[in-house]
């Protein structure tokens, strides 16, 4: 998993909770990286899972909620750092459409080792989208947060219905998105 996810996570924890909490979850998670993350490197996603679990323990907030919130935050940060991907399209659906065939292609150019999840989209009607998330890593929550963050960026309000399942090593989630009002 790309380093930016980790460093953004820690920054968010420091900001929302405290540097103290961030330090604790790093120290207590006994991370191979020792919590020294840089966006130009890739790290084991289990480190993120370990840190989120620790945070959940400490804050009594369920893991999915934490991850979703983080996703929303991450979407905002992406929009700041990589505005070209956002400004080229005008709606959440268009943006989601462009992930698989545009954004991930660009990511692969810069980081040939990046392992990106797959997002297959389908539009049954003008106000609805079906999207299948699939990844070896269990981050459907993060995906949901990112979708929400994106819709906030475009000033749209989405209702999300989600259904998860697993097949072998692969994690799947079907999102049914509808634009509200």
């Amino acid at each position: 998993m790309k380093g930016i996810v980790f460093s953004e996570f820690i920054e968010l924890v420091e900001e929302v909770f405290s540097p103290q909490i961030a330090d604790e979850i790093i120290t207590e998670s006994d991370l191979a990286s020792e919590g020294a993350y840089t966006s130009v490197l890739t790290y084991d996603h289990h480190e993120l899972i370990a840190m989120v679990s620790k945070l959940s323990e400490k804050t009594n907030i369920p893991v999915p909620e934490l991850v979703k919130t983080f996703g929303q935050h991450l979407a905002k940060r992406f929009a700041e750092q990589y505005p070209q991907f956002f400004e080229n399209v005008n709606t959440t659906f268009d943006f989601l459409d462009s992930i698989e065939n545009h954004i991930h292609v660009e990511v692969k150019k810069l980081y040939s080792d990046a392992q990106v999840p797959s997002f297959q989209t389908e539009r049954p009607g003008p106000d609805s989208m079906k999207m299948i998330y699939s990844s070896e890593r269990p981050f459907a929550d993060l995906a949901e947060g990112l979708i929400l963050g994106t819709s906030e960026y475009y000033g749209e309000s989405l209702s999300i219905r989600r259904q998860d399942w697993q097949e072998g090593k692969m994690n799947f989630a079907k999102f049914e998105l509808t634009i509200q009002g």
């Binding site: 020792e34 020294a36 993350y37 130009v40 490197l41």
Partner: peptide, 11 residues
């Protein structure tokens, strides 16, 4: 600081 330094060196 130690973490930041380590991250910087890795980067």
């Amino acid at each position: 600081i130690e973490r930041e330094r380590k991250a910087r060196k890795a980067a």
